[in-house]
Design a protein around this nucleic acid. Structure first.
Lengths: 192, 192
DNA sequence: TATCTTGTCTAGCGGTGCTAGGATCGAGTC
DNA sequence: GACTCGATCCTAGCACCGCTAGACAAGATA
């Protein structure tokens, strides 16, 4: 029994190592540099070991994405709970979201730009992703406005943030407008 | 003289063929299917011919992106000029933008998701891209609101549309809310 | 100690973007 | 009309990718 338990523990530990290494490598050199060979070398195992943990590279990206979703949900909740008043909470949410995207570009890519093989079909959406959306919903519901479906409003608000995050990082928007964009977005979308 | 002119004409024609074929193949089977081998076979030339026209695959993607930007600008202008009143024009712009993204996913990817090697550093941005932004600016300026920088407002509006377009296509948003999302976005962002 | 299962690695498959170097074709010249 | 020569194109191959079959060794079981 104990032997098997030890092995399972070691396996789980190695799996965490794979995900952490993939994430680290992606943040350092971009996802293009995250090849199975490079990744295998960094964890000091051969390539096939990766495939005994994940069905393919896509699943590794998906694992990084789920980790990121959990962290993003936490970051958003921490920021909103520290703010007072609906308007301030919505603004804090927006800034926390954009900060996370800017600070963890590779993770954000794994979540929304790359194919991590994650399902989004309402039912079998992984819990961390549902929870990240829920974190947005909690704060945004109070500024959705009368008679506006909170989920609908959250989708619009989220999409706007997503657009700002991706276009800003791609160098498509004027960097000096960053703060004013957030102000404008919150002012217009949020109903107090 | 005439011989050289004919050759240049044929070269230009072949270049158009390459871009058109890449675009067609991408729309049919996705950009993953657009390999240099597949592309070469479709135009009935060998691979190296591609490299006598473009420095690499990235440049071919960039060419498709520029073509798409021109078309999108035209589509937006056509839609807005057919609408009456600022609110109707802004709504028409939003729908035209989202329609274009939904109808030409591969082209939209070339423009905003893939690396087409296009510059965006204010000065050396290719004219078609500048013009596409200008097309948005023309209509959105009139609903930016008092004292709001039109360029800033356009960036925010555009980012929101971009977010809606990408998240919707990735299956991240509820399809049945599509029209209501546009209504909500225009209602909140546009100042009449 | 002998057996056997489990886990890991070596080697290799078919694919990718890209390119060096040889063959071929056609334009210009005698 | 034959010939030279330069432009043009293709064959073949490089290094890399994601992924996997099968040999092999280490460790648990008896």
């Amino acid at each position: 029994m104990s032997v098997q338990e030890r092995k399972e523990r070691e396996r789980a530990e190695r799996e965490r190592l794979i995900v952490a290494t993939a994430r680290e490598l992606a943040e350092q050199q971009g996802w293009d540099a995250v090849t199975t060979r490079q990744l295998a070398e960094r964890i000091e195992y051969s390539q096939p070991v990766l495939y005994s943990h994940f069905h393919g590279k896509r699943e590794i990206i998906g694992a990084v994405a789920l980790e990121g979703a959990t962290e993003m949900a936490a970051a958003v909740r921490a920021a909103t709970s520290a703010a007072e008043g609906p308007r301030a909470r919505a603004a804090a949410l927006a800034r926390a979201y954009l900060d996370f995207a800017a600070s963890n570009p590779a993770v954000y890519d794994a979540m929304f730009q790359l194919d991590g093989g994650l399902a989004f079909a309402v039912d079998d959406t992984p819990p961390p992703l549902k929870d990240a959306f829920a974190a947005l919903l909690e704060t945004l519901t109070e500024v959705a406005g009368e008679g506006v479906h909170p989920g609908l409003f959250t989708e619009v608000f989220w999409a706007s943030l997503h657009g700002l995050a991706t276009l800003a990082r791609a160098g498509r928007l004027h960097p000096e407008f960053a703060e004013r964009r957030v102000e404008l977005l919150v002012d217009r979308l949020a109903v107090l």
